[in-house]
């Protein structure tokens, strides 16, 4: 599956459009990570636990989008966008969307 965030797949021609595909996941962090993060908040710096958590969640959302696209018979998703929103305290939603196409 080819993913791009531009309107085409360079070097290939788009043969067919399948419309919007999207994937999302809502994740909360577990207590241990939260505790570590609040300690880290004192001295500042990177919160590795959060970075990993968000990256994992984003990968999962992307995989869901890819599954959907594959189901439609597409072999590429173009114009992929990421969106993040915090739903509640300590939980955030990662949303990925794009246009499924078939390229040759």
């Amino acid at each position: 599956m080819i993913l791009t965030n531009i309107e085409s797949v360079p070097g290939k021609n788009i043969m067919e459009h399948f419309g919007l595909v999207s994937g999302s996941t809502v994740r909360a962090k577990h207590l241990g990570r939260d505790l570590m993060a609040s300690l880290k908040n004192l001295v500042g710096g990177e919160l590795k636990g959060y970075t990993e958590l968000l990256q994992e969640s984003r990968d999962e959302a992307t995989n869901r989008m890819i599954d959907q696209a594959r189901h439609l018979g597409a072999n590429a998703v173009i114009n992929v966008r990421f969106a993040t929103s915090s739903v509640a305290q300590g939980a955030s939603e990662l949303y990925v969307y794009g246009t499924a196409v078939r390229v040759e």
Binding site: T4, G44, E46, R58
Partner: peptide
């Protein structure tokens, strides 16, 4: 130039400020 491959790449970082700041 001929294009070999196209891929979506991403990177992220979560950074926090310290207490003093």
């Amino acid at each position: 130039a001929k294009i070999e491959s196209v891929a979506l790449v991403q990177g992220s970082a979560v950074i926090s400020v310290d207490y003093f700041k």
